[in-house]
């Protein structure tokens, strides 16, 4: 393949997810500092996404400080105080793709479509959460301070 061909292929590969439903982002340290696609998160919407069993289903593994929620999971760490422990950028990275930080992380990547095996055809090429939903969840989790 010519050098020009390689560059073209690389451009195509880079463009493919963006043409789909995954936003591009830059990692700085253990964070994605900039909001995805420059979107503004809404904490109330994020609180709904976190509880939604059909999408993020965060509470299957995590607990939140809400006495009215029953049967919350304990596989992941409790989310109480996460907004004090982590910056919004650090939360964003962990939602988008925790394996960027720890390749063995059990937590799913919520905004990634590449490098996944044997995905149900109904979900192939689609991230679990959209860029807007990621920003909404970041906004909500940032409110869970001490």
């Amino acid at each position: 393949m010519t050098a020009r061909g390689v560059v073209l292929l690389a451009l195509l590969l880079a463009a493919a997810p963006a043409a789909g439903q995954v936003a591009s982002f830059a990692v700085t340290g253990d964070a994605i500092a900039a909001p995805l696609e420059g979107r503004v998160g809404n904490a109330a919407r994020g609180a709904a996404v976190v509880r939604n069993r059909e999408t993020a289903n965060c509470l299957i593994c995590h607990s939140i400080p809400d006495a009215t929620e029953r049967f919350m999971g304990e596989v992941g760490p409790p989310l109480a105080g996460v907004g004090a422990r982590l910056t919004p950028g650090q939360i964003r990275l962990r939602l988008v793709d925790p394996t960027l930080l720890n390749p063995a992380a059990a937590m799913p990547a919520y905004h990634r479509v590449d490098g996944l095996a044997n995905v149900d055809p109904r979900w192939r090429g689609r991230p679990v959460l959209s860029a807007q939903e990621i920003e909404d969840v970041v906004a909500y989790l940032a409110t869970l301070g001490d």
Binding site: P108, V119, W123
Partner: peptide
């Protein structure tokens, strides 16, 4: 041992 699916989990991780 293979991570699978959109949620990227192996049997063993659970």
């Amino acid at each position: 041992g293979m991570r699978q699916g959109q949620l990227n989990l192996s049997c063993g991780q659970c």
